[in-house]
Design a protein around this nucleic acid. Structure first.
Lengths: 256, 256
DNA sequence: CGCGCGGTTGACGGTTATCAATTAGTGTGG
DNA sequence: CCACACTAATTGATAACCGTCAACCGCGCG
């Protein structure tokens, strides 16, 4: 995550491009949006729908969004969430691959795809950042596939909470209060579970002393009392660097 | 899939780059590899391992490969397969995200990452192709997440077979003989199932008259007797274009 | 107050994982 | 040539996990 953008920049100096657009001196993707008007959205409002022509790129200024697809029979799959600072709409060709909705009220800025492409094409730095962005997206898609492919309900939930924990600062005692801005149904559709299983699994984790719901009225804030236990239960125990090269010897399959 | 590369090309003419490298006139990613020596690999041989420094980009000339990650306790997740003509190693930052192994004997060509980057940075056409490649990878990762998130064993298997069918030509009678080059265990690890469930589900589909195993000795060739039924059972019934915009009204969840 | 919504809890059953045995194909060596 | 071992795949019995259906709780709001 802290790696320098190496790709497409290695030969940046080979390009001597006339920099004429308003974005020419932009050094990161966010600065592209700086002059765009702020747009306010209400809860449940959509940025775009799956299959729509991909006309804009969006920067999330405030709030949380869900990315999802609907199957023929009504099943919904949430493929990701967006938080303040995220950018969406880059990794598209002609059409959006998924729909995006604000979970609660939110603020965004938008750029036409054309303007975005223009700015990126003129800057080696931005090209590299776009490439990096795509790689990050791929990496988290991979992680999600691992989660969905072979983790139990408890492992899925712990992984989910852990990801949120890592976006949060600890308090003095090394404990965390994490905000879960989305409703249970969204968590379920994201983790490939039902709302009931999510609820029950949270209850079980509370029973184990790993979690506390801060305020029964506001269930969107959860305190992590045992971060280490949470990481343990998440299942990807340091990914087992040593055995990757000779997994054949262990030979075992273990559960789905 | 038949869309023109729009991204990073829109302003291609703004760049007047001195094209001096051997790759300067390359018009597609494969031509980059044309002059590289052909390498032969045996069954089970690795191209690289998850976590290795990403030093090369590979073109698959012949054979099939599995992309996978190993979890701490030995569970294996196959995140994808590679077939002749595919390219792997682009969507990486410093390190490979997964390991890649030849399923049977195979042939590849490789390019150093540096050379690849160099060539791509000098050509607008190649840049656009790389971007397109990444978008395709994202799209199939999304599809896989949908599959793993909410499809039953039968739907998963039918989806898998359907994907292979679409890479194959029909015979005169509109039927298909598809080759499944990987063993059952690989299918299982890819579909988030066990080998037993894969086997049982195939048997069930044969019972329904949808499939025939061409030769009990060579189980890697499967005849699709009812392609329409297979598509039906795969579950993503034309993705329900109409209801995407108003899924709220249907209100229903349906099974995981 | 009654209603609706989001969330929790309980009972039950189905799908699929797990454990175990069997078959068939393949290669090896005497 | 056949016995043997070994692997890939299938089949069967059983049980666990989690989905389904249903009831219930607490809260906010008209």
């Amino acid at each position: 995550m802290e790696t320098k953008p190496v790709f497409l920049t290695a030969y940046a100096n080979a390009h001597q491009v006339a920099k004429a657009t308003p974005f020419a001196e932009a050094e990161n993707l966010h600065s592209l949006f700086a002059k765009q008007p702020l747009e306010q959205l209400g809860a449940g409002q959509s940025l775009f729908f799956e299959g729509d022509e991909a006309k804009h790129v969006f920067e999330i200024v405030e709030g949380t969004f869900r990315l999802f697809r609907i199957l023929g029979d009504g099943r919904r799959v949430i493929t990701g969430f967006l938080y303040a600072g995220d950018i969406v709409g880059i990794s598209m060709k002609d059409c959006y691959l998924y729909s995006v909705e604000a979970i609660a009220s939110a603020k965004i800025r938008r750029l036409s795809r054309r303007a975005f492409q223009c700015a990126v094409a003129e800057s080696e730095i931005l090209s590299a950042l776009v490439f990096e962005h795509l790689c990050d997206e791929m990496a988290s898609a991979q992680d999600q596939m691992v989660l969905l492919s072979c983790k139990s309900a408890e492992e899925r939930l712990c992984t989910f909470l852990l990801r949120h924990m890592n976006r949060t600062k600890a308090d003095g005692a090394g404990r965390f209060v994490i905000e879960i801005p989305m409703p249970r149904q969204d968590m379920a559709d994201y983790l490939g579970l039902t709302i009931e299983t999510v609820s029950r699994t949270i209850t079980k984790l509370i029973g184990k002393g790993v979690l506390t719901v801060v305020d029964p009225a506001a269930r969107h804030f959860i305190k992590v009392d045992k971060p280490a236990a949470l990481a343990q239960l998440a299942g990807d125990g340091d990914e087992c660097i040593d055995m990757r090269r000779d997994h054949a010897v262990s030979g075992g399959r273990r559960r789905h």
